[in-house]
């Protein structure tokens, strides 16, 4: 089975649909028409660029280039996590907490999967390593961003409760435990929901892609199951780690709640 190649004309036809949608949203004064068009243009440019980069990477497969690509992806994901916080940590912590926990969870799980489960040769073969890392980072990023955002919002809103508990002799960890649990849970929920609905409500994107590319459905499904498990582990451990790490950073060595370490983000 061969992949049917898409012509620029095919893409242009699909683009007409997006332009039509933008027209309707403008007519209805929904205020998202411009944003929608900009996002569509960004998709085209970003994906074309990444296609070129990946093509070059595949043609010149070398561990150094793969590592560089991985670091760039991590850097961008770290920025995204920070940008999605309404109240993020001031200074380098705002970037560092997300980036470090993402690095630990996504990279560790990608390397583990490449060396023990998928087993390409060499283990860092870009055709496998980059898409795998990309899917893990993308999902882990969402989980960590949700968890951190929920944590800082809850702590901000319930600061009187936290200080009330501290004043009665609770440790910082006891004082923040309900907010921390809830934040970690909200980081995990999208992944759990995606696993529960997979195949019934929606066909996962990666599997669909492999089937379109001509892979036998059962093989595609096996890959999808592997990816789902990896994503759950990466997102779950990442979100829990980030929330724990961030909650400890909200208190100082004398167990005082330090909301001055947060600052309002750009998206308020």
């Amino acid at each position: 089975m061969d992949l049917i190649r898409l012509s620029p004309f095919d893409l242009a036809l699909a683009a007409v649909l997006v332009v039509l949608l933008a027209g309707v949203t403008m007519w209805a004064r929904m205020g998202v028409g411009r944003t929608l068009l900009i996002a569509a243009v960004r998709t085209v440019i970003q994906l074309l660029l990444v296609g070129l980069v990946l093509q070059t990477l595949f043609d010149h497969a070398h561990l150094g280039w793969v590592a560089l690509m991985a670091m760039v992806m991590l850097a961008v994901a770290g920025y995204e996590v920070m940008a999605r916080q309404q109240r993020r940590f001031a200074g380098m912590w705002g970037y560092g907490i997300g980036a470090v926990t993402m690095f630990v969870s996504s990279f560790a799980i990608t390397v583990l999967a490449l060396t023990t489960m998928v087993g390409p040769s060499p283990w860092w073969e870009p055709q496998y390593s980059i898409p795998l890392l990309g899917m893990l980072l993308g999902n882990t990023m969402t989980g960590i961003a949700l968890g951190l955002d929920r944590l800082t919002q809850n702590v901000w809103r319930e600061r009187r409760t936290i200080e009330g508990r501290l004043a009665l002799g609770a440790s910082w960890s006891e004082a923040v435990t309900t907010m921390r649990r809830e934040a970690a849970r909200s980081g995990l929920m999208p992944t759990i929901n995606a696993m529960a609905a997979a195949g019934i409500v929606s066909l996962p994107g990666m599997m669909t892609g492999q089937i379109l590319a001509g892979a036998p459905p059962v093989e595609a499904v096996k890959y999808q199951i592997l990816i789902m498990f990896l994503i759950s582990a990466g997102t779950g451990f990442g979100a829990i780690g980030a929330v724990w790490f961030a909650s400890s950073r909200l208190f100082d060595h004398r167990q005082r709640l330090r909301l001055d370490r947060l600052k309002p983000g750009r998206h308020t």
Binding site: E158, R160, T161, E163, G164, R165, L166, A167, L168, G169, A170, S171, W172, T178, R254, Q255, R256
Partner: peptide
């Protein structure tokens, strides 16, 4: 800090209940 705050108890004007 928890030992200290149990001995030196701060009661704010508006108490928090969770």
């Amino acid at each position: 800090p928890p030992e200290w705050r149990r001995q030196v108890a701060y009661v704010p004007a508006e108490t928090a209940w969770w």
